[in-house]
Lab assay of single mutants.
Amino acid sequence: TEYKLVVVGAGGVGKSALTIQLIQNHFVDEYDPTIEDSYRKQVVIDGETCLLDILDTAGQEEYSAMRDQYMRTGEGFLCVFAINNTKSFEDIHQYREQIKRVKDSDDVPMVLVGNKCDLAARTVESRQAQDLARSYGIPYIETSAKTRQGVEDAFYTLVREIRQH
Rank of each mutant, 00 (worst) to 15 (best):
T1V: 09
T1P: 09
E2L: 06
E2T: 04
Y3Q: 06
Y3H: 15
Y3R: 15
Y3D: 03
K4N: 15
L5K: 00
L5N: 01
V7Y: 02
V7D: 01
V8Y: 11
V8C: 07
G9E: 00
A10C: 10
A10T: 07
A10L: 08
G11R: 15
G11Y: 09
G12V: 13
G12D: 14
K15I: 02
K15M: 00
K15T: 03
S16Y: 00
S16P: 00
S16F: 00
A17Y: 00
A17Q: 13
A17L: 01
A17S: 03
L18I: 09
L18Q: 04
L18P: 01
L18D: 00
L18W: 01
T19V: 11
I20T: 03
Q21S: 14
Q21R: 07
Q21I: 04
Q21N: 13
L22Y: 07
L22P: 01
L22W: 09
L22F: 09
I23T: 06
I23V: 05
I23M: 14
Q24R: 05
N25W: 07
N25G: 08
N25V: 04
H26R: 02
H26C: 13
F27L: 03
F27V: 03
F27R: 01
F27Q: 02
F27S: 02
V28M: 09
V28F: 09
V28C: 10
D29Y: 06
D29R: 06
D29H: 02
D29L: 04
D29M: 09
E30R: 02
E30Y: 07
E30Q: 04
E30V: 04
Y31N: 02
D32C: 03
D32R: 01
D32A: 03
P33Q: 04
P33C: 02
P33G: 02
T34I: 00
I35F: 04
I35N: 04
I35L: 05
I35Y: 05
I35G: 00
E36P: 00
E36V: 01
E36Y: 04
E36S: 02
D37M: 00
D37G: 00
S38F: 02
S38C: 07
S38D: 02
Y39S: 00
Y39P: 00
R40D: 01
R40N: 04
K41F: 09
K41W: 12
K41E: 10
Q42N: 06
V43N: 12
V43D: 10
V43K: 13
V43M: 10
V44T: 11
I45Y: 09
D46C: 09
D46A: 10
D46G: 11
D46K: 09
E48H: 08
T49S: 11
C50R: 05
C50G: 07
L51F: 08
L51M: 11
L52C: 11
L52Q: 02
D53H: 03
D53Y: 03
I54L: 09
L55Y: 04
L55P: 00
D56R: 01
G59Y: 03
G59R: 03
G59L: 02
Q60F: 15
E61K: 12
E61C: 14
E61F: 15
E61G: 14
E62R: 13
E62V: 15
Y63I: 14
Y63F: 11
S64D: 13
A65H: 09
A65I: 15
A65W: 11
M66H: 14
M66D: 13
M66S: 13
R67T: 15
R67E: 13
R67H: 15
R67I: 15
D68V: 04
D68P: 05
D68I: 04
Q69W: 10
Q69D: 14
Q69M: 10
Y70P: 08
Y70T: 13
M71T: 11
M71H: 10
R72E: 11
R72D: 11
T73Y: 11
G74P: 07
G74N: 05
G74L: 05
E75I: 12
E75G: 06
G76T: 03
G76V: 13
G76D: 01
G76P: 01
G76K: 02
F77Y: 12
F77E: 02
L78G: 02
L78Q: 01
L78H: 00
L78N: 02
C79V: 14
C79T: 04
V80Q: 04
V80I: 11
V80C: 10
F81M: 12
F81V: 09
F81T: 04
F81S: 03
A82I: 04
A82W: 04
I83C: 15
I83A: 15
N84G: 15
N85V: 04
N85M: 06
N85H: 10
N85Y: 04
N85P: 01
T86E: 12
T86S: 12
K87W: 06
K87M: 12
S88T: 10
S88Q: 09
S88K: 05
S88I: 04
E90K: 09
E90L: 11
D91S: 14
D91E: 11
D91Q: 14
D91L: 15
D91H: 11
I92V: 10
I92F: 14
I92S: 05
H93S: 14
H93V: 15
Q94P: 05
Y95C: 15
Y95T: 13
Y95G: 05
Y95L: 14
R96P: 05
R96E: 04
R96C: 15
R96G: 07
E97V: 05
E97Y: 05
Q98N: 13
I99E: 01
I99C: 05
I99M: 05
I99G: 01
K100H: 09
K100P: 03
K100D: 05
K100G: 05
R101S: 08
R101F: 05
R101P: 03
V102A: 11
D104Y: 07
D104P: 10
D104A: 12
D104S: 10
D104R: 11
D104W: 06
S105C: 11
D106Y: 14
D106W: 12
D106H: 13
D106T: 12
D107I: 10
V108Q: 04
V108S: 04
V108P: 09
P109F: 05
P109R: 07
M110I: 11
M110T: 03
M110S: 01
V111Q: 02
V113L: 12
V113E: 02
V113I: 13
N115M: 15
K116T: 08
K116S: 14
K116G: 15
K116C: 15
K116D: 02
C117Q: 07
C117L: 06
D118C: 09
D118P: 01
L119H: 15
A120T: 09
A120N: 11
A121V: 08
A121R: 08
A121C: 10
R122D: 13
R122V: 11
T123L: 09
V124I: 12
V124S: 11
V124C: 08
V124R: 10
V124F: 12
E125V: 08
E125M: 10
E125D: 10
E125L: 11
E125T: 11
E125P: 08
S126Q: 08
S126Y: 09
S126M: 08
S126N: 07
R127L: 10
R127G: 08
R127F: 12
Q128I: 13
Q128Y: 07
Q128G: 06
Q128W: 10
Q128M: 09
A129L: 13
A129Q: 04
Q130G: 07
D131W: 06
L132S: 05
L132W: 12
A133Y: 05
A133W: 04
R134F: 06
R134K: 13
R134P: 02
R134E: 12
S135N: 10
S135K: 13
Y136W: 09
Y136K: 05
G137H: 03
G137A: 04
I138M: 08
I138Y: 06
I138C: 09
P139L: 06
P139V: 07
Y140S: 02
Y140W: 04
I141M: 05
I141T: 06
I141F: 12
I141W: 04
E142L: 04
E142V: 05
E142P: 04
T143P: 04
T143M: 15
T143I: 15
T143G: 07
T143R: 01
S144T: 14
S144A: 13
S144L: 02
A145E: 00
A145Y: 00
A145S: 14
A145K: 02
K146Q: 15
T147S: 12
R148D: 10
R148H: 15
Q149F: 10
Q149T: 09
G150V: 11
G150P: 10
G150L: 09
G150T: 12
V151T: 11
V151L: 13
E152W: 08
E152D: 10
E152L: 12
E152P: 05
D153A: 08
A154T: 07
F155L: 09
F155G: 02
T157S: 09
T157P: 03
T157E: 11
L158H: 00
L158M: 06
V159L: 13
V159I: 14
V159R: 04
R160K: 12
E161R: 12
I162Y: 04
I162Q: 03
I162V: 06
R163E: 09
Q164H: 07
Q164C: 08
Q164T: 08
H165A: 11
H165Y: 09
